[in-house]
Structure formats: C-alpha cells, structure tokens
Simulated scan of single mutants.
Amino acid sequence: MAAPAPYLAIAEALRERIAGGELAPGTRLPSVAELGREYGVSPSVGARAYSVLAQDGLVISRHGAGHYVRGPEPAELLVRRHRRLSEDSPFAQGAAEQGTEGTWRHESVTAAADARTAARLDVAEGDPVMRTEYVYLANGEPVQLATSWEPMAVTGQSMIVLPEAGPYAGVGVAARMRVIGIEVGEPVERVRARGATRAEAQQLGTNPTAPVLAIERTYYDQATGQPVETADIVMRGDRWVAIYGQAPRV
C-alpha cells in the first residue's frame, strides 16, 4: 500500500496531537516554514497540511498571525433585529443589550462606482461614491464585515461625508441622513446563506467555506425613492441569528 502524500501524513500527525490534548485549543502552531524544516518538506507542503486541518474544522488561519488550534465554539448567539430608525449606533446598541461590547474598525475612501454598485444606487457607472470597509467585533472577536457605499452627490458637500469622522461619527445611516434632511425607511435587504470566502474567513477568524449570512442592504430616501446607501454585510453563521417581527403585547 502506497504511503500517504507528505501533506496528508503531516496533517494526520498534527491531528493526533490535537486529539490527544498535546496541542490545546488556542495554541499557535508552527509556521509553514518551521513545519517544513521539522518534516523535511517545502513550506507549500506544510500549507497544504494546514489547509486540510482547516477544512476539517481543527485549525484556523488568522491573517498575518499564523495558524492556531481551533477552540470550542462560543455557545452564545448574537441576535440581529430590525432596530428603530431613531436609534444611533445600531450594532453597538444591540450588542450592549446582549451584554457584549460592540466595537468596529473602519476605513473610508472615495471611489468610482462599478457597474454593480451603480445599479444599486441608481447612479451612473463611474460616479463618485464614498466606500467604507468595516470589521465589527463583539468583545474583541470579529463577528461581522461590511462594505458600504454612499453617493457623493448626496453626502459630498455635507459634514456627514465621512461616516466615521466628524460630529456624527459612529451613528447609524438613518441618524446621519437625518442631519441633511433625508428620512429613510426600513432598509430593503436580500439575505442568503453561503460559505465564507478565503479573505472573509481570514478577517472573521474562521475557516474557508464556514457558513455566513450574506446581506445586500439598501436605504432609500422616503421622499424621492432615491437610494442613499447600499452595503454588503457578511455575518458569521455560527454567531448570529436573525429575528424579524414582534410578538403582540397583551
């Protein structure tokens, strides 16, 4: 019987050490270069071994930080609800109500609308938009990503042009748009389940193909029907449950 491929043999050796408790949850594993030296193979072989273990749910890859033994999944779920439009910081407020500290990282840049974004915002392809990338964290753990686009024709000459700068930084879309006299209603959302991409998995600290909720969200000016913000939201499927509607109070 032929010997297993080197990457499979390395993966099996690490699997046994994890199962036996020698490598505890959260342990940082050797780099692919260190793994290569230990087993006398190229770093690419070590990378393939880690890929096998990641697909099996035993190892996670953290972008720029290496590979780690996957810990037990948290039992608690974060609940996502449609929130009242008057509320600020919907993510932080919702997290606080569940006993979790909600924070986020962000980066805003001006960009030209591609065909997909232009269609969602009802602007011409190439029109200027403000694009903001978000990583949302619950108690320091990444649980959600978002990319938001706003037409510069709507916000470009106002103090809310940068969503995370100025006196209205960190508030929700509805509260920011109200500053410039725009009332938005409930957003239109298109929700589907899929597997995380490799880039999403690295940012969220999970494995490629792990389940996520992918949401396309658009806010509209209620007076004109013009889209004023659209966003792609990606939520870890193992951390979130979405609840819609409200039971009657009797």
Rank of each mutant, 00 (worst) to 15 (best):
residue 240 W to H: 15
residue 156 G to V: 10
residue 215 I to N: 08
residue 229 E to T: 00
residue 237 G to R: 15
residue 138 A to H: 10
residue 242 A to I: 15
residue 123 V to C: 11
residue 48 R to L: 14
residue 114 D to W: 01
residue 62 R to W: 07
residue 76 E to K: 04
residue 53 L to A: 15
residue 157 Q to M: 01
residue 202 Q to T: 01
residue 156 G to M: 04
residue 14 L to S: 09
residue 16 E to M: 01
residue 224 T to G: 08
residue 191 V to G: 00
residue 23 L to K: 03
residue 111 A to S: 07
residue 137 L to Q: 15
residue 196 A to W: 06
residue 127 D to H: 01
residue 85 L to M: 02
residue 126 G to R: 05
residue 104 W to V: 06
residue 187 P to M: 12
residue 116 R to W: 01
residue 159 M to W: 03
residue 156 G to A: 06
residue 113 A to L: 02
residue 20 G to W: 02
residue 48 R to I: 05
residue 106 H to S: 14
residue 240 W to Q: 09
residue 74 P to R: 11
residue 174 A to F: 02
residue 208 P to G: 04
residue 51 S to R: 15
residue 129 V to I: 08
residue 249 R to K: 09
residue 148 S to D: 08
residue 205 G to A: 04
residue 96 A to V: 02
residue 127 D to T: 06
residue 100 T to V: 14
residue 89 S to I: 02
residue 5 A to Q: 05
residue 9 A to M: 12
residue 153 A to Q: 11
residue 35 L to G: 13
residue 77 L to F: 14
residue 30 P to E: 07
residue 204 L to K: 13
residue 122 D to F: 03
residue 42 S to W: 09
residue 3 A to Q: 09
residue 118 A to H: 06
residue 84 R to S: 03
residue 224 T to F: 00
residue 8 L to Q: 12
residue 123 V to D: 05
residue 135 V to M: 07
residue 98 Q to Y: 02
residue 199 A to F: 03
residue 166 G to T: 11
residue 245 G to F: 14
residue 14 L to V: 13
residue 201 A to H: 06
residue 87 E to A: 07
residue 182 I to T: 01
residue 6 P to G: 10
residue 25 P to S: 04
residue 27 T to V: 07
residue 94 G to K: 06
residue 160 I to F: 12
residue 61 S to H: 14
residue 45 V to N: 05
residue 152 M to T: 05
residue 89 S to R: 12
residue 116 R to S: 09
residue 8 L to E: 10
residue 244 Y to T: 15
residue 139 N to A: 14
residue 210 A to D: 15
residue 167 P to F: 06
